[in-house]
């Protein structure tokens, strides 16, 4: 598999004077093309700092980050990296720039010098992808949080990136908005083959990923499939994280299985109830 992101002993400290306060410490990770990776960690764990290294918003204090083989520390590479690695942040209100939805989505391709008929087709296309084509003439600030966040995602998609890095894109949304956005992200991953790196502290969102990376105190503590990672309930609790309730109830009942969905949990509970 092609590695789209590679970090080698990535170390980062926010202030040079306090050289010992590492935000990230020797993080070495490979992320393969087309995977859906969830990065878990509590506030202050370094997970957002990690995300900002993937397209060169932050540069390593030590170590290297390669996005599509391009070294992020070389300024000449930044244009190529940012076209390939799009970022979506927590608050959609901070990411929308125009007063009309379709103009907002067109902002990045316009800046990239994409020809105007190509921009038109890209904008229509990505709005359909995120299920917002009916709102193209609307004002972004009149939309709900989930709708706004989908517009922000469309704006990134219009650049046709290969990797989407999302830093808690659902943190400010209600359950309906969260479901809309998560369904959109999964569809992009499955249908368009876009690699997704989702920074989150929602365990149910992480449970749906192909791979979970747990970061604590700037270091990777767990890395594996959701099933592998959630088997370490106690360790996760110790670093301020929880496991999905489907995992918790089985553990409480002394069962060894890890269930990632309600259905799976019920299958296991049925066996338990029958003795």
């Amino acid at each position: 598999m092609e590695k789209v992101i590679r970090t080698e002993k990535l170390t980062f400290t926010y202030s040079a004077e306090e050289a010992r306060s590492f935000a990230l410490r020797k993080v070495s990770l490979d992320i393969e093309k087309g995977t859906f990776v969830a990065v878990l960690g509590h506030n202050g764990s370094g997970k957002s700092t990690f995300a900002k290294h993937l397209n060169g918003i932050l540069l390593p204090s030590e170590g290297k980050v390669y996005s599509f083989g391009f070294d992020t520390s070389d300024p000449e590479n930044l244009i190529n990296i940012r076209r390939n690695v799009g970022m979506v942040f927590q608050n959609p209100d901070n990411q929308l720039v125009a007063t009309v939805v379709e103009e907002d989505v067109a902002f990045a391709p316009e800046n990239m010098g994409v020809p105007s008929d190509e921009i038109r087709s890209r904008v229509d296309d990505v709005l359909k992808t995120v299920g917002m084509e009916k709102f193209k003439k609307h004002a972004p600030h009149m939309l709900s949080g989930g709708q706004k966040q989908r517009i922000a995602i469309a704006g990134i998609l219009a650049m046709e990136p290969n990797v989407l890095v999302m830093d808690e894109p659902t943190a400010m949304l209600d359950p309906v908005g969260r479901k809309e956005v998560m369904a959109t992200i999964h569809r992009l991953n499955k249908e368009k083959g876009i690699t997704v790196i989702l920074i989150t502290h929602h365990m149910d969102e992480a449970a749906q990923a192909d791979r979970i990376v747990v970061i604590n105190a700037g270091q990777v503590t767990h890395d594996g499939t959701p099933r592998e990672v959630f088997a370490h309930r106690k360790e996760l609790l110790d670093i301020g994280l929880a496991v999905p309730q489907t995992v918790e109830i089985l553990d409480e009942l002394g069962l060894k299985d890890v269930a990632l969905s309600v259905d799976e949990c019920c299958d296991i509970l049925e066996k338990y109830l029958k003795g």
Binding site: D174, P175, V176, D204, P244, Q245, T246, E248, I249, V262, D263, C265, C266, L269, E270, L273
Partner: peptide, 20 residues
């Protein structure tokens, strides 16, 4: 109305649907 019940409640509802 667009609200979630706790996951554990969903598990119990599903068990009830299965006849428990």
């Amino acid at each position: 109305s667009g609200l979630d019940v706790p996951q554990i409640t969903s598990v119990l509802i599903e068990l009830k649907n299965r006849g428990y």
